[in-house]
Simulated scan of single mutants.
Amino acid sequence: MLLRNLDITVGLCNGTRLIVTKMGRYVLKGRVISGSNVGEKVYIPRLSLTPSDTRIPFKFQRRQFLISLCFAMTINKSQ
């Protein structure tokens, strides 16, 4: 399940479910299984996230894929 909006025109929005078909070091290949673009193949890049909180006295950066493993979900996400 995607955790953030990546590309709304392609259907990569928060909560979109997909099946990962291929894993690379910097990109994931997947097939959408929910929403209006069911069956479409998409690529999800690994993004760098930097917090914008000015109270932190130093800068740090985290690189991650914006997906979460989803075996079960709440009723609100399934609607």
Score class of each variant (00 low, 15 high):
Leu28Trp: 11
Val20Pro: 09
Val32Tyr: 00
Gly24Asp: 06
Lys41Trp: 06
Cys13Phe: 07
Thr9Val: 05
Val38Pro: 03
Pro51Tyr: 05
Phe58Ala: 08
Glu40Cys: 08
Val32Thr: 11
Arg62Asn: 06
Asn76His: 04
Leu49Lys: 02
Leu3Ala: 13
Leu49Trp: 04
Gly39Met: 09
Asp7Gly: 01
Thr16Arg: 01
Ser48Asp: 13
Met73Val: 02
Ser78Ala: 14
Ser68Lys: 15
Val42Leu: 04
Gly35Asp: 10
Arg17Asn: 09
Ser48His: 13
Phe60Arg: 04
Gln64Glu: 10
Leu28Thr: 06
Ile44Met: 05
Val32Pro: 05
Gly24Arg: 02
Val27Gln: 06
Tyr26Lys: 12
Ile33Arg: 08
Ser52Ile: 08
Val27Cys: 02
Gly24His: 06
Ile44Glu: 00
Asn37Ile: 03
Gln79Phe: 06
Arg62Tyr: 07
Ser52Gln: 12
Gly11Phe: 07
Ser36Phe: 02
Leu49Gly: 05
Gly24Phe: 10
Gly15Phe: 09
Arg63Asn: 11
Arg4Gly: 00
Ile19Arg: 13
Asn37Trp: 06
Phe65Glu: 00
Thr54Ile: 11
Thr16Asn: 04
Ile8Ser: 09
Ser52Ala: 12
Thr50Met: 13
Arg25Leu: 14
Glu40Gln: 15
Lys41Arg: 13
Cys13Val: 04
Cys13Lys: 00
Phe71Pro: 11
Ser78Cys: 12
Gln61Lys: 14
Val27Pro: 01
Leu2Phe: 02
Ile75Tyr: 10
Arg46Trp: 02
Arg46Asn: 08
Gly24Asn: 09
Thr16Ala: 06
Ile56Trp: 01
Ile67Gln: 06
Val10Ser: 12
Lys41Phe: 14
Thr54Leu: 09
Leu69Asp: 02
Phe58Leu: 11
Val32Ile: 15
Met23Lys: 10
Met73Leu: 09
Gln79Thr: 11
Cys13Ser: 12
Ile8Val: 14
Tyr43Phe: 13
Leu6Lys: 05
Arg31Asp: 01
Arg55Ile: 09
Leu2Glu: 03
Ile56His: 09
Cys13Gly: 03
Phe65Val: 11
Leu66Arg: 06
Gly24Thr: 00
Asp7Ala: 07
Leu6Phe: 13
Tyr26Arg: 08
Ser68Gly: 07
Leu69His: 06
Ser68Leu: 12
Arg62Asp: 08
Val32Asp: 04
Tyr43Lys: 11
Lys77Gln: 09
Ser36Arg: 02
Val27Gly: 00
Leu66His: 11
Asn5Arg: 10
Lys29Ile: 03
Arg31Tyr: 05
Leu28Ser: 13
Pro45Tyr: 00
Leu6Pro: 01
Tyr26Gly: 00
Gly30Glu: 02
Thr74Arg: 13
Asp53Pro: 02
Thr74Gln: 14
Arg25Ser: 15
Leu47Ser: 03
Lys41Asp: 14
Lys41Glu: 15
Asp53Val: 01
Glu40Thr: 13
Ser34Gly: 05
Gln61Val: 15
Asn37Gln: 13
Gln64Trp: 01
Asp7Ile: 01
Thr54Tyr: 03
Phe60Thr: 00
Arg63Trp: 09
Pro45Asp: 07
Ile19Cys: 15
Asn14Phe: 03
Gly11Asn: 04
